[in-house]
Design a protein around this nucleic acid. Structure first.
Lengths: 189, 189
DNA sequence: AACTAAAGTCAACAATCGTTGACTTTTAGG
DNA sequence: CCTAAAAGTCAACGATTGTTGACTTTAGTT
C-alpha cells in the first residue's frame, strides 16, 4: 500500500487540529499552549510544530470555518430573517454546532489575525448570502447591521453568558430577534 | 503639609492606571505586560506590583467603568431607544469616550474575570437604567436584547471594524439601529 | 532480512513573564 | 540638621513559553 503511509500522519494531524480547536476555543489564542494541545493529542509538542510550522499557522488551520448560511432566494421573502437567525443559532447550539465559532469569536477580540479572518468570513459568507436578495447599493449596510445583531447575540449569549440571554430557551430568543433581522434584511431603513 | 505626602504616590498610581488601561485596551490582558505598562509610566515594574499587589488586581482596578446611561424617565417614551444608542455611541467615539470600554469588551472575551465584571456592569447599569421604565417581569428579557444589539455594535464597529459598520458615519448607524432598541425597550415582543 | 524514509521522542535553547527581596534615594516632620 | 518613613531602583528567582536539533522507533519497499 502506498496511501496508508500518509493516513497515519493525517490521523495525528487531525488529532492535533481537534485538540487545538478545543484549547483555542476554551482559553483563547494566548492562553492555549502548544504543550497542552500536544498533551491532549497524546503526542510530543515538537510534533505540533513539525506538522504546522508555528503556533500562528496552527491557529490559521484551526480556524477555517463555514457558517453554512441558507440560500435565501429559495425562502419566502417575509421568512428570511427568521431563517437566518434560526440557522445561526443552530450553528451555535444545535446539531450543526462545533466550537470553531467560539474559537474564532473569542480570539478575534484580542488577536488581529483572528479578527482579519472573521472579517473575511463576514465579507465572503454573510455578504455573499445577502447578495442574491439585496440590491448592491444596500448590501454592505444591511450586511453590517445583521452582523452586529447576530455577533452581538453570540457574544452575550455564548461567551459572556449574560443572565438576560443565556438562560432563555433558544426558541424565545429567535422569536424576539427575528423581526430585527427581517427589518435589517428587507425592511425600511 | 500632611496631605501632599499622599499626593506624590497618588500621581504615580494614576500614571500606572492610565498606562495599564492603554495597554490592556490595545493588547488584551495576556499580551499586556507589567514591564511595558511600567515603562510607559516611566517607573520600575516592581513598583506596579507594590501599588496593586498583582496583575489581576491591577486589571480589576483599571476596569472600573461607568456607562453613564441617561435617565430614561425624563425622556419622551418614543425617543428613549434613540437616546440609549446615542449615549452608547457617544461613550465610544464622542467626547464621552475613553478606552476603558474597549479594554473591558476586548478582555471579556478571553478573561473570565473581565467577563464577570462585564456581567456586573450589565446587571447594575443596563438593567438598572431600564428598571424605572420597564415592568419587572419583562426586565431581564428586554435588557438582554438591548445588550445583545449594543454590545454587538461595539464589537463589530470598534473591535472587529467590519467594513459594513466601521466605515459609516455615526449618525447613519444611529438612525438604523434606534428603531431596534426602541422595540426591545417598549415595543411588542 | 536489510534498508530507508516517515513518525515520534527527548532534552535543551532563548526569551518573556509575574513577582520578590535587598538596597538606595527622596521627602516630610520634629 | 536628623531621622524615619515613603518612593523608587536593581538584580534576580522560578515558571512557562515557542521552537529547534539530535536521536530513536516504526513501518513499508526491495
Amino acid at each position: 500500500m502506498s496511501l496508508p503511509a500518509l493516513r497515519k500522519s493525517d490521523r495525528t494531524r487531525q488529532a492535533i487540529l481537534t485538540a487545538a480547536r478545543d484549547h483555542f476555543a476554551m482559553r483563547g489564542y494566548d492562553r492555549a499552549s502548544i504543550r497542552a494541545i500536544a498533551a491532549q493529542a497524546s503526542i510530543d509538542p515538537s510534533l505540533v510544530i513539525r506538522y504546522f510550522t508555528s503556533k500562528e499557522q496552527l491557529f490559521a488551520a484551526a480556524v477555517d470555518v463555514d457558517l453554512r448560511l441558507p440560500e435565501l432566494s429559495s425562502i419566502q421573502k417575509t421568512r428570511r430573517g427568521r431563517a437566518l437567525i434560526e440557522h445561526f443559532i443552530a450553528r451555535w447550539e444545535g446539531e450543526l454546532s462545533d466550537d470553531v465559532l467560539t474559537l474564532l469569536l473569542r480570539s478575534a477580540a484580542t488577536n488581529e489575525q483572528a479578527a482579519e479572518r472573521l472579517r473575511d468570513v463576514f465579507c465572503e459568507q454573510v455578504v455573499g448570502t445577502l447578495r442574491e436578495v439585496v440590491p448592491p447599493e444596500e448590501l454592505n449596510r444591511r450586511a453590517g447591521l445583521i452582523a452586529s445583531q447576530l455577533l452581538g447575540l453570540a457574544l452575550t449569549r455564548y461567551l459572556l453568558r449574560l443572565p438576560g440571554l443565556a438562560e432563555r430557551p433558544a426558541g424565545e430568543v429567535i422569536d424576539d430577534i427575528a423581526p430585527t433581522i427581517q427589518r435589517y434584511l428587507a425592511g425600511d431603513l
